[in-house]
Design a protein around this nucleic acid. Structure first.
Lengths: 129, 129
DNA sequence: CTTGACTCTATAGTTACTATAGATTTTATA
DNA sequence: TATAAAATCTATAGTAACTATAGAGTCAAG
């Protein structure tokens, strides 16, 4: 299949696919006579692996490492484990931050009654302090 | 005070301060004979307003709008309110996403017992599916 | 008077894409 | 078969919010 079809079946944009290729996350596809990329089901699998990792917010560089590790099935998977745990730590940290954000924003929103003027606005006041 | 001192008292890096100025979030400071930026306490207040907004993850463009609004105290603050509510929606959305992420990552981490090989690694398997 | 710390501007790099321009190839229609 | 439309190609620039660098100028202390 050509890149447009791969794009549709995978849900990745055409530019993103080409970008992943440039970044070394996808193996170089065959080319047609006219230099169009030609993909197989294996390519789709590769792309889906990347997509799944991205849906977990794993950075492209880490995904690259995971792909390399995948190709060494006899090695210990402790590095894979470490990578996932790091990602989990990050997510936990970000969640804590977001909770704090949410609290402050809610508080702020509650101090504004919308027929006030900006001069009397509780939101602006709390941002100023 | 010069930019280095403002940087220390505010906790913003020197480059970030200059960047905010370029982006129009801080008013242009006085300059010394030798063209060094000279800041007042008012400048510090301005910078702290920006910092506070940023700590709430409000984008620079929105902060710019808030600053403009701040300077029109007689207008209705409904737009301020709207902006904060939008920000709150964003935070809530992101929190939901993160919760889902966290679940999947935890699940994955639990399928790996670290003395396995990559070939048998539950993490890689689940990323593959 | 010179050394080191600080500051200046301008520019490039970061991440993960998205968007564009201009050229080429393929497919569909007349 | 001619041609128009759709898809693809590469290369490059833009996005957000900074951070880092280069190369030059300024200032305070010894």
């Amino acid at each position: 299949m050509k890149i447009g079809e791969l794009s549709k079946t995978s849900g990745c944009s055409v530019q993103t696919i080409r970008y992943y290729e440039r970044e070394g996350l996808l193996s170089d596809p065959e080319r047609s006579e006219g230099n169009f990329r030609l993909y197989s089901d294996k390519s789709l699998k590769e792309l889906e692996f990347v997509k799944h990792c991205r849906s977990l917010d794993i950075p492209l560089n880490d995904i690259k490492r995971l792909i390399e590790l995948k190709n060494k099935p006899e090695e210990s998977c402790s590095s894979v484990n470490k990578l996932i745990k790091q990602q989990l730590d990050l997510v936990n940290k970000r969640m804590k931050e977001l909770k704090a954000l949410k609290n402050e924003l809610q508080q702020m929103a509650s101090t504004c009654n919308s027929d006030n003027t900006i001069g009397a606005c509780g939101i602006i006041k709390s941002l100023d302090s």
